[in-house]
Write a protein that binds this DNA or RNA. Structure first.
Length: 339
DNA sequence: GACTAGGACGTGC
DNA sequence: GCACGTCCTAGTC
């Protein structure tokens, strides 16, 4: 995928807000997640080098990026350097979660030096692989949010209700103040037509952050429209859609389907719900309040809580969809028919 | 206090 | 009628 992805700098920094520590001179970004793990990432932009102040201006073009929509609601931005592959980056620390850290198949790494021409080809191929992977990740994350919120990926198509859902979602994920009222009666077209300044005027506290988030969605929609998606990616995405469900077929989603969706995205939701034994369909709700909030968001039930959610789960006992495992534990349930 | 279990009733589709 | 959502009581951890 050759198209550069336009990323608003606020998106790169604000998305992980509290987490971006620094950009060093050699474009090394050190991002810190909420749980304290530090990831060292390579980044470079293809544009002439900007000084630190320029980098805060809108419209910075990054050659490649990878936003990981983590379970603790942090977007981690990864950017590939054209002079170093991800796999051979300067950070010797192993990636704690392989799922979040795709291994790039880069022939020649760690072996004998390649001729300059061949090296360039390898680099180019590695870059393409990185770009393809990271862009795919962004699209997948947005698709996940779309499925959970039951909205389309393209903000332009959003209704006023969709805009409010997206706002609620974003506020919730990034712990922003509630600003839904400031954007009342705006549909997706209105929202996309707004400038960053408009956002700031409506919401001085976090208008720029919201604008940055929207910018990512817009960029993803733009890419989706223009970039031809490789066959394998297409198949992968079709699998994703077929995984679940209902949210794409217009049918109301069932709680058990929603729970399965969350379980199928461990890198996003592993902190609030996870498999204990996937083969047997046994899962544990790690953060009952959070899962309930997500379910409430999905069903547009702000008053949802774990009491109510668990009551619904218990209704599944009779129906033979979910049961308590043989050895009953708190917050642990089992799908009667595992995936 | 948080979780579990289940009855009863209401609501939207 | 179905699939919850809401409220409730009672018991357990």
């Amino acid at each position: 995928m050759a198209s550069p992805v336009r990323v608003h700098p606020d998106a790169a920094l604000h998305q992980s807000a509290h987490s971006a520590l620094s950009f060093s001179e050699n474009s090394l970004a050190v991002l810190k997640t909420e749980d304290g793990a530090v990831e060292t990432l390579e980044l470079v932009d293809n544009k002439p080098r900007l000084d630190s102040t320029d980098r805060t201006l809108p419209g910075l073009y990054l050659s490649c990026f990878d936003m990981l929509f983590t379970e603790d609601a942090t977007w981690l931005v990864r950017v590939a350097d054209s002079s170093a592959s991800v796999a051979s980056g300067p950070n010797p620390e192993p990636c704690p979660e392989p799922e979040q850290c795709p291994v790039i198949d880069s022939p020649g790494l760690g072996s004998e030096p390649l001729s300059p021409g061949l090296e360039d080809q390898v680099e180019e191929r590695s870059l393409e692989q990185v770009q393809s992977l990271v862009v795919g990740e962004v699209l997948k994350d947005i698709e996940t949010a779309c499925k959970l919120l039951n909205i389309t990926p393209d903000p332009v198509e959003w209704s006023c209700g969709n805009v409010q859902k997206w706002l609620l979602w974003t506020e919730h994920l990034y712990r922003l103040p509630q600003v839904g009222k400031a954007f009342q009666d705006l549909d997706g077209k209105d929202l996309c037509a707004m400038t960053e300044e408009d956002f700031r005027q409506r919401c001085s506290q976090c208008g720029d952050t919201l604008y940055a988030h929207l910018d990512i969605w817009k960029s993803a929609a733009w890419m989706k429209e223009r970039c031809s998606i490789g066959e394998s990616r297409l198949m992968e995405r079709e699998e994703l859609w077929s995984e679940a469900d209902s949210s794409c077929s217009g049918q109301p989603i069932h709680l058990w389907q929603f729970l399965r969706e969350l379980l199928l995205k461990p890198h996003n939701y592993g902190r609030c719900i996870r498999w204990l034994n996937k083969e047997k369909g046994i899962f544990k709700i790690e953060d009952s309040a959070h899962v309930a909030r997500l379910w409430g968001l999905r069903k547009n039930r702000p008053a949802m809580n774990y009491d109510k959610l668990s009551r619904s789960i218990r209704q599944y006992y009779k129906k033979g969809i979910i049961r308590k495992p043989d050895v009953s534990q708190r917050l642990v349930y089992q799908f009667v028919h595992p995936v």
